[in-house]
Nucleic acid binder design. Structure first.
Lengths: 340, 340
DNA sequence: TAATAGTATGTACACGTTTAGCTACACGAG
DNA sequence: CTCGTGTAGCTAAACGTGTACATACTATTA
């Protein structure tokens, strides 16, 4: 391995001067600078980031803890995060928690041990609240929660307007004549799940529609769970739903599509369907899917901006945490009818 | 920051003993071990991975260079990579090259500077061949090329059977009566692009169908480019195609769907369509899409397995590089007809 | 009894950087 | 001539680990 010692020797200067040339943090004469740069090129010298980090305490690395990179919504968020980070000289260490809080905790342990400069997290519920408070918040390690919050933890947050989103979506169905509206969301331990349910209920109440438990299914992310949740709704309800809002994951959406397909329930003839988040392909589903959506890339970008901001300037530490909430938008396609 | 010195002091042992307890690499009496473990717990001590890496030269980190995490095919590969890596105690640093070879090179520079233990790469063409040879292969840094190869570089490779896959796909169309088969692939600088084209041409030749340049479009990944490629095919050809194989990305597939939609060309009535890679949603397209596919998660898994294998045992260095090639499968749905 | 092996722990250097603190020179102002 | 200031560069300590080597004790064996 070629080190700054080798460069210093070849350029006939001290290691301090080599360091000064690389980091441009103090005066070096043109003459010496040239000699150093030539030596660097000649030896193909690359500074060792590990050694540097040991001294400076900065790794130029952000830890990213998400439930699952295979889920397209998350992968778009990650795209935004990576893009902003890369532009600003940061790398990201990507870890999947698989919606498992023990694994999530192990991941945090490893990331903190690796001295990441900051963290972006899509937490899987709030089970690790105490751990995070003790090891992250208290030690002033910058962290941004993305898409989901943890109640009772004061930290930067980038989310979307879930209550309003679900409220408007439900209202839209009601205005088009739907009365038996079912919803499939995340479990309530996950803030978007809780809030989307809240918006849904708010709308039903305002529209004086009875709230039926058998229309509300929460929990699950996979296609299989989507299938089963949908099955449960149809099995448990005396009056079958005339519409379903799938407000959790796209995999669950696919499970629902699967169930409807298997049972020859046609969209929108037999049932109205609305999803969350406008992935590139949902407009090519059969029929094109109406969705309530949010700019995913931008959300990821913002999360990275916040965390880097915090890493690089300490002024924020005494401020109130930032809370960025992205507006949601309803994109109307053909998976619902006007049925009154 | 609490260090091993603090632990040693509290436990009244030397730092060597603390290190021995943590790494279990030499005998420590039960008595001392207990004292050390208690001190560790009491102080909430976490070994500093940076300092450890500086000494051991290992970071337990794998660098991952892919074109774009937002592309679902890649994100499934990454899911497989992350899963295997995590199980074996490795983290991954994720970097998007955006199919830009200069950016790719910068990324490699950074990753090597950060002393990743190994690399997994989906290269964006072969422009960085010399750089990779000089800085990775020659320095014996383990690397695995995934999905795409670089000609002339001897390294481990995990790919799929692209020639056979495209050959069988084209044959399938021919056997169902299609005669004017267009194809949209990656540029030829990307091995799957080259090979899929090869398989396509092989089939046409065997079936004695004229090869027409206006039916072959290569290059591009985005929806926009998919749209334009499709437009070009229709504009340039006197005899319009009766079928299209979209063998590049899903975004390009979406662009093609978009074009067909805009021009009211119905699938499969007016045109047959076959895609590559069976993402969860393609069977819910309108109509369900026939695809030629490969197990993505497993491919990612295998790539991680190979690179970790190489990192942890040096025996492979003198062996021939591993070349793993996954079989492809045609899943027939309703986006093609039998038209003879 | 002396040699040997096994047990048990500590000392001190090394990894490759950054940087505080020091020296030293040149030049213009007072 | 002295002082301050800007220029120029070096020495040496520090970051938090891992580990080679040294030390010392005990038990076994010939």
């Amino acid at each position: 391995m070629v080190t700054s010692v080798d460069v210093a020797k070849l350029a006939k200067v001290s290691r301090a001067t080599v360091s000064a040339v690389i980091n441009r943090n103090r005066y070096v004469s043109k003459e010496l600078e040239k000699r150093v740069l030539n030596a660097i090129k000649k030896l193909n010298y690359k500074p060792n980031a590990i050694a540097r980090s040991l001294k400076t305490k900065y790794t130029k690395t952000i830890g990213l803890v998400i439930p699952n990179i295979g889920s397209p919504f998350f992968s778009f968020l990650v795209e935004g995060i990576e893009s902003f980070s890369n532009k600003n000289g940061y790398n990201i260490i990507l870890c999947n928690s698989d919606e498992n809080s023990e694994k999530e905790r192990d991941i945090l342990d490893v990331l903190l041990g690796k001295s990441v400069d900051g963290l972006i997290m899509i937490p899987t519920g709030s089970k690790n609240k105490d751990y995070i408070f003790k090891n992250v918040i208290k030690s002033k390690k910058p962290i941004v929660f993305l898409d989901r919050e943890i109640n009772g933890i004061e930290a930067d947050v980038v989310v979307s307007e879930n209550i309003v989103g679900a409220y408007e979506t439900t209202n839209f169905l009601f205005k088009n004549g739907y009365k038996n509206i079912a919803i499939i969301t995340h479990s309530e331990d996950i803030t978007p799940g809780k809030k989307r349910l809240e918006g849904y209920i708010k709308s039903l109440k305002e529209n004086k529609i009875e709230i039926k438990e058998e229309y509300i299914k929460s929990g699950g992310f996979s296609s299989k769970e989507g299938y089963l949740n949908c099955e449960d709704i149809f099995r448990e309800s005396k009056i079958k739903p005339d519409s379903i809002i799938v407000a959790s994951s796209h995999l669950e959406l696919i499970g629902v599509l699967n169930y409807l397909d298997d049972h020859n329930i046609k969209i929108p003839k037999d049932i109205g369907l609305i999803g969350f988040d406008d992935l590139p392909w949902v407009r090519y589903l059969n029929p094109p899917l109406t969705v309530n959506t949010v700019p995913m890339f931008e959300m990821g970008n913002k999360a990275a901006e916040l965390v880097i901001d915090k890493i690089e300037s300490k002024k924020h530490y005494n401020n109130k945490p930032n809370k960025i909430s992205f507006k949601r938008k309803l994109i109307i396609r053909n998976s619902t009818n006007i049925i009154y």
